[in-house]
Design a protein around this nucleic acid. Structure first.
Lengths: 147, 147
DNA sequence: TCAATCTTGATGCAATTGCATTTATATGTG
DNA sequence: CACATATAAATGCAATTGCATCAAGATTGA
């Protein structure tokens, strides 16, 4: 890796980080204004909604969402308290259980979606027009088939 | 904004978020392994290093780094406790002060840089080769001069 | 000038996170 | 089977964050 590639990676990273930060702020604040749960809860609800009746084991969710184990453990407890998911013992593994989205959970997920979608659309369009995005784009264009 | 653009924005957002998450994990863990301060501290030290002897007011730093006021206030207190920055009353504004990087602060910032740079280089190259990046790239390419 | 308003920065308190450890079950090996 | 090791999930405790509010100095404007 040459020096100039390093510089580009760092610039790209700064662009990526700033775009992310702006987007998270915009999305969280849109959800909060609408008195809806946070982005993190949305991600959990979405995965469980996609998983359907079979649900997902906490460790599966943990990997899909790149969350720390203890973090997920407590977040799912809170989401369960809110009534959006439920748990049932796993048939196959006495240590664990499956998390399943509830009817209320599906409802709230559906209510979050338009708010989330709109905030993403707006903030990403803004990002796309920024210098940060231009630098990231430069870096990404340079190569994209190592795997 | 058409429906298909919406779908692309969401896909792009997911790619952006995952790339960010992987990168943050990689960078933080590289810094931690090297017994160095976190990414957040690096950002502060870098800005103050760039600002030189004049330093920066907390509110300026807050805006540059997109941090919440209370968050920055406490973080700078911790960095000051660690001896990497110092504060001096502002000549122009009795409410505030300037934050200035110390010699030790410059030293630790310099020590962090190669670790940070290497982690960024590795993780961004990985990201660049991913499907997440491909989707983000598609979205970014579509348009980039709205402003 | 001085009261109303705004800006800068700190802080009490509750909620969340990070780290290390614990508990319980599963799996693999002799 | 019996033991060692690995995996799933929870939790005690300290550190950090988020929210709301506060205190102090700056600014505005009648």
């Amino acid at each position: 890796m040459t020096d100039s590639e390093d510089v580009n990676a760092t610039d790209a990273w700064i662009g990526l980080a700033r775009g992310h930060s702006h987007a998270v702020d915009a999305i969280e604040s849109a959800l909060k204004s609408a008195a809806l749960p946070s982005l993190a809860w949305y991600d959990v609800l979405l995965e469980l909604d996609k998983a359907g009746g079979k649900g997902l084991r906490p460790f599966e969710l943990e990997r899909k969402l790149l969350l720390a184990q203890y973090n997920l453990s407590r977040m799912t407890a809170r989401i369960e308290d809110a009534g959006y998911i439920s748990r049932r013992p796993s048939q196959h593994d006495g240590r664990g259980f499956e998390l399943v989205i509830t009817k209320t959970g599906r409802k709230i997920r559906a209510a979050m979606w338009p708010v989330y979608k709109k905030a993403v659309g707006t903030t990403l369009a803004e990002f796309r027009a920024s210098k940060d995005a231009a630098r990231l784009l430069d870096y990404l264009k340079a190569n994209n088939n190592t795997d």
